[in-house]
């Protein structure tokens, strides 16, 4: 019992240390919709990344996906990755949903929920925004109407901080000038 308590105390201290530190995102690889391996490491630093954990049986998740598709199509400097956490028996339904809607974003399949556990996701949808330094700068659980505005505000804020003009602003300027 005493030994267990000491070990718990050490673990607790390690936890406290971790709370003081800013952790970058851990790199991972998952199969995409064509079962080809996709590694996030190849894209960190190139663009900001929105990672959304979703499931085919989750109605709020289904409402969020079209909003993420708009973000993916609007911002050249943002990549959207939707990670399905459907289990092996329902993953084919999840793939069919994505193909039928013809979404443009990257879809990955975390069938064993390993990456979901690594990101400490317990409910879906769960959305993260990763900046160009590979750090998680935004995190949100659930989805209701208007939640996408909070994500957009954060994206704009990050883009402004990095002084990277989004493609949409250039297009708007060109349109106004015309």
């Amino acid at each position: 019992m005493r030994a267990n308590l000491k070990i718990i105390a050490v673990l607790g201290i390690i936890v406290l240390i971790s709370l003081l530190n800013s952790e970058p995102i851990q790199e991972f690889s998952l199969p995409d919709i064509n079962n080809q391996s996709f590694s996030i490491a190849n894209h960190l630093g190139e663009k900001m990344i929105v990672i959304d954990f979703w499931a085919s049986w989750c109605a709020p998740c289904m409402r969020l996906l079209p909003e993420l598709d708009k973000i993916d199509q609007t911002y050249e400097d943002v990549m959207v990755i939707a990670v399905s956490v459907d289990n092996p028996r329902s993953v084919n339904r999840a793939k069919s949903l994505i193909r039928s809607h013809k979404y443009s974003f990257v879809t990955l399949y975390d069938t064993n929920q390993e990456i979901m556990n690594r990101f400490q996701v317990t409910t879906v949808p769960h959305t993260f925004l990763i900046n160009l330094d590979g750090e998680i700068v935004y995190e949100h659980t659930g989805y209701t109407r208007g939640d996408e505005e909070k994500l957009l505000d954060r994206i704009e804020q990050e883009l402004t901080q990095k002084q990277v003009e989004p493609e949409v602003r250039e297009q708007e300027i060109e349109r106004i000038e015309e």
Binding site: K6, V10, I13, I14, V15, I17, E23, R118
Partner: peptide, 26 residues
Amino acid sequence: FWITVVIILISSSLSYAQVEISGLNE
């Protein structure tokens, strides 16, 4: 035991950039 804890604290502080710690408590 407490000496061990101090060593862990010091080494964690020095090497935290290499050691990534994460977890979940429910």
